[in-house]
Design a protein around this nucleic acid. Structure first.
Lengths: 231, 231
DNA sequence: CAGGCACTTTGTTCTGCCTCAAACTCGCAG
DNA sequence: CTGCGAGTTTGAGGCAGAACAAAGTGCCTG
């Protein structure tokens, strides 16, 4: 394995307070691995034996129902910790992680979690902050699913994707990884057909542009209105 | 304030590893307060300045949408910590807590959170375990809302309520606090009308018995089937 | 560069559940 | 014990969106 560079971590919140030496130590214990698109990184229900940090790429965190339907719980962007079940004293992963685009991640065995949190207070603080943000986001999704019409949910999902992974392109902001109508339907609890119709309508009215697996939001404010934002 | 007895805490997971003296210390720093039914304990969006332990009674944790609709995120049973936003580095509570029945709770100022987790490892471990369980439960609810029909969701909600607060009565298990059809609809993302119709049907087929604000499940296995449990 | 597969679009039908409406009943406050 | 309000029941009608169906279309592989 190639030697990892300290600058990989030094800019990330959980590590930014640490000294070079500390970061070196952490890196030396890490395993680095790349994942091709659609590769499973860990699987729901399996023993949670490692925790991860995404360096590059994007992931979907997915849950499968007994009937075999999938729903996407969460997306992970570069710089985020994931698979941190051990922080919550879980023995198994509650969901599966799948690479949405070619990705690169570091990982450590769970036994180091305790070491890290004890030796590096900023690591602990930042990790729990991430968890708090995720929990809040999940509550928002529950509320949306429980109270809002499909159109609003899809609009909100698109905005969330853009804010988490958007990159500027001429004419708008593009979602940073390949995503299908099916994927969007799995985030919003609807069908790919309905998503397709909605996107077609929005494209016609100039709010988005889309190609196969790619979506560019050209008019975020209009989407915001559709998502039901309070004026 | 009356002197609190150590036995209040000694049986609860977060404290069961501690010595009498340690528990005494914790109790001495606690504020104890009772809440009448429908009282707000803390409110969504307000500064998260205390964390709580429910000693007796039941709470609803509620979120309000911009449109003013409520949805019930969670129920809290005796012995559980709640309002633990500070553990996740949040500055405000993400939801409101309301007494579902007359309740008694202890609370501490947030600055003690750090003290507790540092001095009492079992406190930290157990708190994060609770959080992990809640996160898992929320994921399950998202999945349900996204994929399952109303009847299943209501059946699942009833079972969850019974398992969290059920007390044995002749002829079945009763939900341990007053609950309206409206409340159930706010847990499941439907309307009180639909809930009423479902409960009426189930009562007719002998699965439950109900009175105003009270529900007794007389045939849990049949409910389990309705909730879509995998055989 | 041709063929196939994954993804997408579009049409039609059908229904679960919401909406609106109104009457009923229990329990408590006065 | 009586009247009122909160909670509940029940009916009828409509429609958003699921289900079913089938025909494009772009991309990658060989």
């Amino acid at each position: 394995m190639a030697q990892l560079d300290e600058s990989l971590l030094s800019g990330l919140p959980p590590f930014s307070q640490l000294t070079r030496v500390q970061i070196r130590e952490i890196l030396d214990q890490a395993t680095s691995k790349r994942y091709e698109r659609d590769t499973v990184i860990f699987r729901e229900g399996f023993e949670a034996d490692r925790f991860y940090l995404l360096l590059d790429g994007y992931l979907r965190v997915v849950r499968t129902t007994p009937e075999g339907e999938q729903i996407i719980a969460l997306h992970i962007s570069p710089g985020q910790l994931f698979g941190i079940a051990p922080a919550l004293q879980r023995e198994t992963y509650p969901a599966s992680a799948i690479a949405a685009s070619e990705s690169l991640a570091l990982s450590w065995p769970v036994r180091l979690w305790e070491t890290f949190t004890q030796n590096y207070p900023s690591f602990s603080t930042e990790s729990y902050k991430t968890l708090g943000a995720r929990l809040g986001e999940m509550q928002t999704r529950i509320t949306e699913l429980a109270t809002q019409a499909v159109e609003r949910r899809v609009a909100a999902a698109l905005l969330r994707l853009v804010s988490q992974s958007g990159r500027k392109v001429e004419g708008g902001v593009e979602i940073g990884f390949p995503i299908t109508r099916q994927n969007i339907s799995e985030m919003t609890g609807t069908t790919l057909h309905t998503v397709s119709r909605l996107l077609a309508a929005w494209e016609k009215s100039g709010i988005i542009k889309s190609a196969r697996k790619r979506i560019v939001v050209t008019d975020p404010p209009r989407l915001l209105v559709l998502s039901g934002a309070k004026s």
